[in-house]
Computed example of a mutant assay.
Amino acid sequence: MSIVITGASGRLGRFIIKELLHHVQPDQIVACVRQMESAASLEEQGIAVRFCNYDEPASLKEAFAGASRLLFISSPHPDDTVRLRQHAHVIEAAKKANVGHILYTGFAFPEHSDISMTHLHLATEHAIRTTGIPYTFLRSGLYMDFIEALDLHAAISTGNLRVHPGSWQFNAVTRSDLAAAIAGVLSVEGHSNKTYELVAPAVWSFDNVVSTLSELTGKPISLCPINEVQHWIFSFLRKIDTASTSGDLEHLLGRPVTPLIESLRSYIGASQI
């Protein structure tokens, strides 16, 4: 079995490879990267590294050669028109390389959102289905990383977590949980033509954040919704589905997702506790 992973030098890609090494041998993994020098540490582990650029179709067919499973990590390009073209290149190359199975990292509950990013993921999924190649759609939830925009250190210092007003609920998950679940899917049979919504099984709110911060720090912290908070993240969050839940992630993990208290502990650091 040869598992080919695109975007292998990115944050999610590296997390997935780290988890995948618990399931398969290094010589079963092929890491595809745009900058070969960025993957030196992967080569040192016995992982094959191949050049792969979504804008260069010729590089893709060579990178995907012999792939029994291709993990297609979606492009990070900020322009969704460019991303759609890049994704088309990947899918066409997968067909030409006779890839045995395509696994694609999209976005959770795209049908519930109305922004170009989610339209892109739906279009990519449709294009993959038309190839006739067995597929698995790994629809990743909102990364817990978004919480960095809230400036938790300022909240701890002032005793107030400032947010834009709203009935906010979140199904966000950690990259490490996503990586562990995806690695598990990559390493076994039984996931052909399935779609997984990789989100938390229960939502949490900003009220949960302040109570958890208070518990971690021993300081009273209050939620402070004010209209003056105009960070772009709140506009983005309103346009996507952050409240729908699914048990898919916990099922694939075979354990509970990382609890909110552990996620917050990692963001605020030991010096704040």
Rank of each mutant, 00 (worst) to 15 (best):
H112K: 15
L138Q: 12
S2H: 12
G46T: 13
S244Q: 09
F109T: 01
A200D: 02
N208V: 01
F15C: 12
C32Y: 03
F236V: 08
E19T: 00
T242H: 01
P201G: 03
H23I: 03
S266L: 11
F206P: 02
Q25C: 11
A58F: 09
I91C: 09
W232N: 14
I73M: 08
A88K: 14
I17F: 04
T124R: 11
G141N: 04
T130V: 13
Y143H: 15
D177G: 02
A172S: 15
A155F: 06
S38M: 07
L120T: 14
L252K: 10
R162I: 01
T245I: 15
R238T: 10
F72A: 11
Y196W: 13
D248S: 09
H191N: 15
A172P: 02
Q230N: 15
R34N: 10
V199E: 03
R11T: 14
I47K: 01
F236S: 00
S2I: 13
G141I: 05
S192P: 00
I156Y: 01
M36D: 09
S271W: 06
A181W: 08
I233C: 05
R11V: 12
R50M: 00
L249H: 11
S192I: 11
F51A: 08
F137A: 05
A181T: 12
F236E: 08
K96I: 11
C52G: 05
H126F: 12
V30T: 15
C32H: 12
D151A: 13
I273H: 09
I261F: 08
I133Q: 10
A149P: 03
S140W: 03
D27K: 14
G166Q: 06
A180G: 01
D177I: 09
L20K: 02
L253N: 09
G66M: 02
G66L: 01
R83E: 11
M117K: 14
V210S: 04
A67T: 10
A8F: 07
L198I: 09
